[in-house]
Each structure stands twice: as structure tokens, then as C-alpha cells.
Design a protein around this nucleic acid. Structure first.
Lengths: 345, 345
DNA sequence: CTGTTAGCGCATTCAA
DNA sequence: TTGAATGCGCTAACAG
């Protein structure tokens, strides 16, 4: 396969009666080259359909213009939006993206990290799997000063900056909002507590309750997979409770929306009987009825900012990396699913 | 940066007092090697923290174990699901994915294709941008027998197999279903007509109408961007019509769901006044009320099948590539948004 | 089964 | 400003 052999700088050099090194310089905007020879080289290159070999170049230069992106799952609204932002910035700056998913398995994350390392990515943008307990699999990168930036699902490490939203505060504010709407018995449906994200959301929820003088009730915190199915299961569990909550804060929109369907089908009035809130501000929140109160997660911006910071660092314009943490603005979006009183004057 | 220099097979060879080639063989499961020496090599490798250099290997072997994926937009439910399937297969088979998006611009698609080519991807999985009028930017690949497989948004080329669903038939069936429900005046909201996808959906719609003896009304076909905003705009346009349709077939779910919201807010009863159908079977279809009739698009499977076929071909197990087209099964999912009669016994 | 040798294509010294 | 020479790290012929 690939029989027709490639045109190399040697072929160009021969055709132009120049040295390969000159051709190389001409092709790479080298400062020390005559404009006219450069022009000739470029003309001949396009005429002979020269295509540079990135690998040879990478091998020689010891850098790859490639950024590795590691995420838990590709098929998620959040992740795909982040990726869109990253791709934009990367391609604008001449970087490629190589992407892998851990499927929430630390074992796969480790494999992926090794692949990234062998591929000599210039830097890494990582959102960790739930069950990742340590980040030894990134120590090779850290040792070699290959920058690793965590986003969303992060890990505390002095050498690895991270980009997050304030899950704790958002969650606190959201719970507080439910309290202000008159909810006395607020349940919280959340996910895996090993990583920051759902743990912090749960923390904010608890704190808001205690700050309001409510007794915290462990039975009202439900851990789930946070997918469509979990929404249904959770709703049924809530329906079966002897004493039902009058407010539920779901730690993501999908679970909230699907659960709401089930609750409504069973005659529960939203928000009168149970007020509901989600998290992320996905499209779905604007389509369910009543529209879902949620938190706007700036996913696209997070992708843009992560990639920009990484590339700046690679270019020596180190804005970040002195800061160890960037917290993006995310705000409450209050909609009908939780609005029991008219707060507007 | 990256000061601490890497351990190479030469370092291993020196430490082991062997030839570098032997080390290479040991590291690569070469058949012609003594089990004991292999064991020694592997031990020393892990002891010295040897990390292979993929680039050097690629340069030498002239293949990269990398698959290029080109999509119009990363942040879409369909695309992210396809990617998830591709990543799974790729990683299971030792391939990396390098991913780029065209943002519906042929110019960017061309740039991306060139980058992929320079990066010497072993094969390409492509969903084309809307405004791509020719595929000359893939001719370098085709010339070199680097396989290019199109999926979803395809282009007819003897050397490039494609993987699709039967948009025409699905669309025909869906329109027929609306007719059977008693709709007399069916509108169609669709997207860019330059590519196969929306064009075929529109074609199936038209054919179903004429087959049923309905006059085709150009004014009932509305072209839009098929995003959330388009749903709102379209719904308002429909509300403003002097003679409103009694059925609307939206060529994707997002537009259908958002439009439905607006229609309902304006007192339109679904499906009594207007029956509605979408396309793709996204989560949103199961959350809107009434639940949305749609077509199940096997996105994940499409990713799996595309990647599997490509890799099989690269390994010489050429299942596809004799077939030029794979059509995946996709079926109608009828839900309340279009159900006017009880069809069940 | 192992060692020797050469070269993949490029970018960078150093010398001219 | 250009040319000659070298080696990035690896693998595949070939020879032993």
C-alpha cells in the first residue's frame, strides 16, 4: 500500500539544484534566506506536490504540535461542547487534537495516558474518570515538564493547573433558592462522590440546608448514574417514599428532566407539589415543561480557555501556571420548575 | 523544556550488552526472539522507565496507527455519539483518533484534510460539510490508496465507501404515517439541500405526498439552520401563515422540540391541531410533551461500523470496499406527538 | 536466534 | 545567505 513514494525535500533540492537544508529553510519561513530562493522553492514545492512529513519533522524537532485530550465519555453534551471550543483554538494555532475516552475506568485512563505519552503530545487537557484515585499515570508528563491541565473533573496537584466552575457555590445558591421558594424537605440526586464535581455539589447542598437551620437528612441524598435511566429509577423511588420531598435538586439536567416526566405522569404537580432544579443548562431545560431551573455551565468557554492557556504556556506566554486554578463564572438560571412565588415586582 | 532526555533502545542495549535490534525485537513481540532474552529486555525496560517513541517508529514503518476523523461540528448529539463508537473500536485495536471539525466550511475542511495528510493518518472517516462541492481535497489520499470512508454526509466516489441510513425511505415512511393520521397539509422543515442528508429527507417527503395524490406545495417546505433558534423562528412563521399546516415533519429533533414549545404556548394542540414528527431519536424526544415521533438513527453503531471497516481494511481483512455502501437499519418510532388515532387493537 | 548496517525525512549545527 | 554533514529513535534487511 501507499506505493507512489512521497516527494521529499531531497527531491525538491535536486530539482532546484540546491541543498536540502536550503529547501528546508525556504519551507519554514527561516529568517536567513533570500526571498527569491524562497519563492522558487515554494513554487517548485507546489508544482511537485510536495507534502511535508510531520513525523520526520516531529522526530527532529522533538515536539509535535499535538495536544492530547482525555475525557471520561465522548457522548455527552458537556464534553462535546468543551471539545468544540478546544478544537477551534487548537486548529487556529496549528495544533492537532488527539482524543481518548476513559469510559470512567481508571485502567483505561492509564492506558490512554501512556499512549499520549508515546505519541509525545506537547500537552494534555484532562477531565478525570470517576474512579481515578491517584494521578501517577501523569507523573511521566510532569517529570518532563509536559504541561497537564485538568478541567471539570480535577485533581489537586501543585504542577497541574485546573479549570473549574464553583460547584459548591452554585449548588449552595440553588439549594438556597429552593428554600426561599418555601421548600422544607429538599432531596438531592447526585452522582459519584469520588471526584470533585458531584461531591462539591453535594457539599453546597448540605451547607445551604444547615445554614438555613434545616436538619440534614441522609435519606434524602440519592446517588445515581445521572443518566436517563437513573432519572426514571430515582423518580420511582421518590414516589414510593412514605414522606415525599417538596423539592429536588438534581445534579444534572438529564436526570432532572426524565425524572420530572415520571413524576408528572404520576400526578405530581411541578413546582407546586415538588419544585425541581437541574444543573448544566442543556437544551433540554428549555424544552421540558415547566422549563427547568438550572445552572449555566460555560462548557464551550471552558474548552477555549483550557486550550488557550495550554498553548500560551507552550509558547512561553505563561499567563496561567502561576495561578493554579481558574474558576469560570457560572450562574443560576431560575425557571418555572422551581418558581412558586412571583419574585418579580 | 523536556530536559531530562529519554531512554532509548540504545540505552537499553548498552545496559543489557545487546544489539539495539534485539531490544527492538524484544519490545515488539517479534517471533524470532528467545523468551529469556525477551524477558530480560522487558525487565530492563520497565526498570529504566523506557518509553517508546512513536514518531521514530512511525517514520520508520511508514504507518502511524492513527485514524483521522473529520466532522462538521463536534458539539452535536449525533457526532459525539458516533465518535464514542469510533473511539471504542479504535482504542481496542491500538489506533489513535485525531479529530477535526469543519464548522460547515469547505475551506476549513480542506485545511483539515491537508493536516491529516501531513500527519500521515492511516485512514480517514469523514462526514462532509454542507457546502463542500467537490472532494479534490481527498485526492491525495485516494492516489496513495489511503482509505477514505464517508459516513452520514457522504459523497459519491468509486473509491470511497460510505455508511448511511436510508434517509429517503425513513422520510417517506414518516410522511406516510402523518398522512395515515389524517394530515392533509403537511409542512416540512429541513436544512441545507446541498448534501445528501436533508436533500434525501426532503425527497422522501415529497414522494410520499405525491404518491398519496396530494399536490405538492413549495410554500410548505421551509429551509432552516436546524438548531434551537430555527425551531423558534419556524414556529412563529407557521403561526403567521394564513392557512396553517395540520402536520409538520421536522428533519431533526431539536428543531421539532423547540418549535413544538412555541406552538403550544400559542394555543396549538399537538397532535390534534398539528401533528409533529422529528428525526434522530435524541433524548429530547422522550422528554417533550407529547413525546415526539421520530426516526431512530443508530449513531453509535455507525461509529463502530465505520471504524471497524476501516481497520479491517487496513489489516487486509477487507470486508467492505467491495461493497461501496452500507445502509444501516433505522426505524420509525411513533409517539404521541403524531398519534391521532388509536392504531393499536 | 542475534548483531551489523542502513535509512525513514527533516532541521540544525558548523563551515564557507 | 547557502551547503555539507549529522542525528532524532527506530526497524528491517541481511549476514552470521
Amino acid at each position: 500500500m501507499n506505493k507512489s513514494k512521497d516527494v521529499t525535500i531531497y527531491d525538491l533540492a535536486r530539482a532546484l539544484k540546491m541543498a536540502p537544508s536550503t529547501v528546508s529553510r525556504g519551507l519554514n519561513d527561516h529568517p536567513e534566506i533570500n526571498k527569491k530562493t524562497k519563492k522558487k522553492i515554494l513554487e517548485m514545492a507546489s508544482q511537485m506536490q510536495y507534502q511535508s512529513n510531520t513525523f520526520a519533522s516531529n522526530l527532529r524537532r522533538q515536539c509535535t504540535n499535538t495536544i492530547g485530550v482525555m475525557v471520561p465519555k465522548l457522548n455527552s453534551y458537556f464534553v462535546s461542547t468543551v471539545l468544540a471550543g478546544m478544537e477551534k483554538v487548537a486548529s487556529e494555532n496549528g495544533y492537532n487534537l488527539i482524543i481518548s475516552q476513559s469510559l470512567e475506568l481508571m485502567s483505561k485512563e492509564i492506558k490512554n495516558a501512556n499512549t499520549m505519552f508515546h505519541n509525545r503530545v506537547d500537552g494534555l487537557l484532562v477531565s478525570l474518570s470517576f474512579d481515578t484515585t491517584d494521578i501517577d499515570h501523569f507523573s511521566d508528563f510532569i517529570k518532563k515538564d509536559i504541561p497537564v491541565i485538568f478541567f471539570d473533573r480535577v485533581y489537586d496537584h501543585p504542577k497541574c493547573p485546573c479549570i473549574v466552575i464553583d460547584n459548591y457555590k452554585n449548588s449552595y445558591d440553588l439549594t438556597r433558592h429552593l428554600i426561599e421558594q418555601g421548600c422544607k424537605r429538599i432531596a438531592h440526586v447526585t452522582g459519584n462522590q469520588l471526584r470533585n464535581v458531584y461531591k462539591e455539589r453535594c457539599g453546597g447542598y448540605k451547607r445551604a440546608l444547615t445554614d438555613a437551620g434545616y436538619a440534614f437528612n441522609e435519606g434524602l441524598v440519592m446517588i445515581s448514574e445521572m443518566n436517563e435511566e437513573a432519572g426514571i429509577t430515582t423518580a420511582n423511588a421518590i414516589l414510593a417514599m412514605p414522606e415525599r420531598p417538596d423539592g429536588i435538586f438534581f445534579a444534572n439536567d438529564i436526570t432532572a428532566a426524565t425524572a420530572m416526566q415520571v413524576l408528572k405522569q404520576n400526578g405530581i404537580k411541578i413546582p407546586e407539589d415538588i419544585a425541581i432544579a437541574g444543573f448544566n443548562n442543556e437544551l433540554i431545560t428549555r424544552v421540558v415543561e415547566p422549563n427547568l431551573t438550572t445552572v449555566n455551565y460555560p462548557s464551550y468557554d471552558m474548552g477555549v480557555i483550557a486550550a488557550t492557556n495550554l498553548i500560551n504556556h507552550l509558547n512561553g506566554v505563561s499567563e496561567m501556571f502561576t495561578t493554579n486554578k481558574i474558576v469560570l463564572r457560572s450562574e443560576l438560571i431560575i425557571r418555572a420548575s422551581s418558581l412558586r412565588k412571583n419574585t418579580e415586582g
